[in-house]
Amino acid sequence: MTRIRSRLLATSGGAIALVVSCALPAAAHVTVVPQEAEQGSYTTLTFRVPNERDDARTVKLEIVIPQEQPLTSVRVKPHPGWSYQLEKVKLDQPVEAHGSQVTEVVRKITWTAGANAGIGATEFEEFQISIGRLPTAERMVFKALQTYDSGEVVRWIEEAAPGATTEPEHPAPVLKLVPKADETPEPTAEVAAKDDDPALILSVAALLLGAGGLAAGISARRR
């Protein structure tokens, strides 16, 4: 009887845990895809924006480009039903791009929903940009602001502490940057010298001559 009661308690406890876990909302926040790109390259990024409110629509998204990592090229893919605006900033020190000096770069991109647009409950949208050249750094942190038609603004701007095993409550989208893959290296001077070693060439020639003499001797004996 005790065993049966224990089994019933364990079963009911598991069922309660399952119901509670299903009732909890899944964690959702603004993210960037892909999450990794090569340093010094041009790439296309997609910012994925889920709506987290049942009684409000997302009507604006702001993506801030790190000012300490200026990008000389920023292009925005038009999004149906939404307009966008680029906010620029002047650089303290010009940077070179394609043979010319760039003195002004994009600091922030703002998408605003039209009259019949917006992200409703249980929905998400994806906003794309093309950027470059990516800096020589370990990562880029794009702070994001999500505005609802209720007036609420959710600031996805927090960075995880070094070594942290859990992410903050409102994490910012992070793009990891990796070094470019090295091309196949050319042979070094040392390897080339070994390949052209006179002693090696003479040894090969002697082997070929010896093989030829052996073949001639065998042929003569057969005759």
Rank of each mutant, 00 (worst) to 15 (best):
R5K: 07
R5T: 13
S6V: 14
L9V: 13
T11W: 09
G14W: 15
A15E: 06
I16V: 15
L18C: 11
V19E: 04
S21P: 00
C22H: 04
A23P: 01
A26S: 11
A28I: 07
A28E: 11
H29V: 02
V30W: 02
V30G: 02
T31E: 11
P34K: 13
Q35P: 00
E36H: 14
T43V: 15
T46C: 00
R48F: 03
P50I: 02
N51M: 10
D55T: 08
A56Q: 07
V59N: 12
L61F: 03
I65A: 10
I65M: 08
I65Y: 03
E68V: 12
V74L: 09
K77M: 06
H79L: 07
P80E: 15
P80L: 14
Q85L: 04
Q85P: 01
L86V: 03
L86Q: 13
K90I: 02
L91I: 04
D92Y: 02
D92Q: 13
G99P: 01
S100F: 04
Q101D: 02
V102S: 01
V105Q: 00
R107Y: 05
R107P: 01
I109N: 01
I109K: 06
T110E: 13
W111Q: 03
A113P: 03
A113R: 00
A117I: 12
A117Y: 05
A117F: 05
E123Y: 13
F124S: 15
F127T: 02
F127S: 05
Q128W: 10
S130Y: 04
S130V: 04
I131A: 05
I131R: 05
R133A: 10
T136E: 12
E138Q: 08
E138R: 12
R139G: 03
V141Y: 11
V141E: 13
A144F: 10
L145Y: 09
Y148C: 09
S150K: 07
S150I: 02
V154Y: 03
W156V: 00
A160P: 10
A161Y: 12
P162Q: 06
G163I: 02
A164E: 04
P168F: 05
P168S: 09
P171W: 09
K176N: 15
L177R: 11
P179E: 11
A181F: 05
A181L: 13
P185W: 11
P187M: 03
K194M: 09
K194I: 00
D195Y: 02
D195N: 06
D197M: 07
D197F: 07
A199M: 13
L200R: 03
L200H: 06
I201P: 05
I201L: 14
L202H: 09
S203R: 11
S203D: 02
S203N: 06
A206N: 07
L207E: 07
L207G: 14
L209N: 13
L209E: 14
G210A: 15
G210Y: 12
G213H: 08
A215P: 00
A216I: 12
G217L: 11
I218P: 06
S219W: 11
R222G: 08
